[in-house]
């Protein structure tokens, strides 16, 4: 098993990322939606840097120009029932 997992949470391999980029996912937001890299439980904390470097290298961009995928609220897991207001 010589697979190299880049996104540990969603089990996305380096090969899968490279293929997605070759197929046209050339921004972090597209790559995230295409492969689910960054959409797992850690929300990209573990893989974001690695994926950005792969993307920069594959597209000939400077790492300075590759920003992470868009962050949205909530940036920490919230139990659904934390949002339920008690009836008075």
């Amino acid at each position: 098993m010589d697979e190299v997992f880049v996104c540990r949470c969603e089990e996305v391999t380096q090969e899968e990322l490279q293929k997605a980029i070759a197929d046209g996912a050339v921004t972090m937001n597209e790559l995230k939606r295409w492969t689910r890299a960054g959409m797992g439980l850690c929300q990209g904390k573990g893989c974001s840097r690695l994926v950005m470097n792969i993307l920069a290298k594959s597209t000939g961009q400077s790492p300075a120009d590759v920003k992470p995928a868009h962050y949205r609220n909530p940036v920490r897991p919230m139990p659904i029932n934390s949002m339920i207001k008690e009836e008075e």
Partner: peptide, 16 residues
């Protein structure tokens, strides 16, 4: 997805 074993990695509650 692939049924692979996982264990502790970051140890501080961030990596899951």
């Amino acid at each position: 997805k692939k049924g692979r074993p996982r264990g502790i990695f970051c140890g501080i509650g961030r990596c899951t």
